[in-house]
């Protein structure tokens, strides 16, 4: 997975470009904040998109994350954590509030899910794939928040266990263990759902 072309890099705090940008941004430098924004907007959007399941809320919450970050960057205290971890935490809190405010979970509209499908694929196969994907995403959204976060960071953002550990404030071992348990329970649920549908 680490060799994936989509892999996002978690720049750690020792990265001079990130550190410099944070320092300048905290003193009110707009360009520096703009650099951080450009560097992280895609991954924050992705994270929120998969947690909310729709484009509109993902855009709204992404905007809120960066406005909040801009307001508080002067108080950002780097305790050896990457700036991305701070941004993910803001996103995580906002998504948690969003879920609390929305009493009922929203279903993921199928047309909004990015389907990566080779051209010329048979329509029936495509339909089956869509159903399978919908089912899987449905189960993922029923998982506890930390497990959802872990899966998104691992599969969508392609981060390593160590990088996920930094963001979720857990040890690499704890992430590895949580991932294994999540994978097993998710697979079981998925198989059970498939069997009950058949």
């Amino acid at each position: 997975m680490t060799g994936s072309p989509h892999r996002y890099l978690v720049t750690n705090v020792s990265d001079p470009s990130d550190r410099n940008a944070v320092e300048l941004a905290s003193k009110g430098n707009q360009e520096a904040f703009g650099t951080l924004y450009e560097r992280y907007v895609d991954r924050i959007y992705n994270y929120i998109y998969y947690r909310t399941g729709n484009q509109y809320d993902a855009e709204d919450l992404t905007a809120r994350v960066f406005f909040r970050a801009m307001r508080h960057i002067g108080n950002y205290n780097d305790r050896g954590l990457p700036i991305s971890a701070w941004l993910y935490r803001i996103a995580h809190n906002l998504v948690a509030n969003w879920h609390r405010d929305n009493s009922r979970r929203k279903e993921v509209p199928l047309d909004e899910i990015l389907l990566v499908r080779p051209d010329g694929e048979h329509p029936e196969a495509a339909l089956l794939q869509t159903e399978e994907q919908d089912r899987l995403l449905g189960i993922i959204r029923e998982l506890p928040e930390d497990r959802q976060q872990l899966l998104i960071l691992k599969f969508v953002q392609h981060l390593s266990n160590a990088e996920i550990g930094l963001i979720m404030e857990r040890t690499e071992g704890a992430i590895k263990s949580l991932y294994h348990r999540t994978l097993i329970s998710l697979r079981e649920e998925f198989e059970n759902l498939k069997e009950s549908d058949n």
Binding site: M1, H6, Y8, F33, G34, Y37, E38, V41, D42, Y45, N46, Y49, Y50, Q55, A58, E59, T62, A63, F66, F67, M70, L114, V116, E132, Q133, L136, L137, L151, I152, F155, V156, Q157
Partner: peptide
């Protein structure tokens, strides 16, 4: 299977640009 279905999405370019401007 998870790798296949959990693919990164790209935010709308208009949204990214507009948010940058607002910030």
């Amino acid at each position: 299977l998870l790798e296949t279905y959990l693919q990164p999405v790209t935010p709308r370019a208009d949204f990214v640009r507009e948010l940058h401007r607002r910030l």
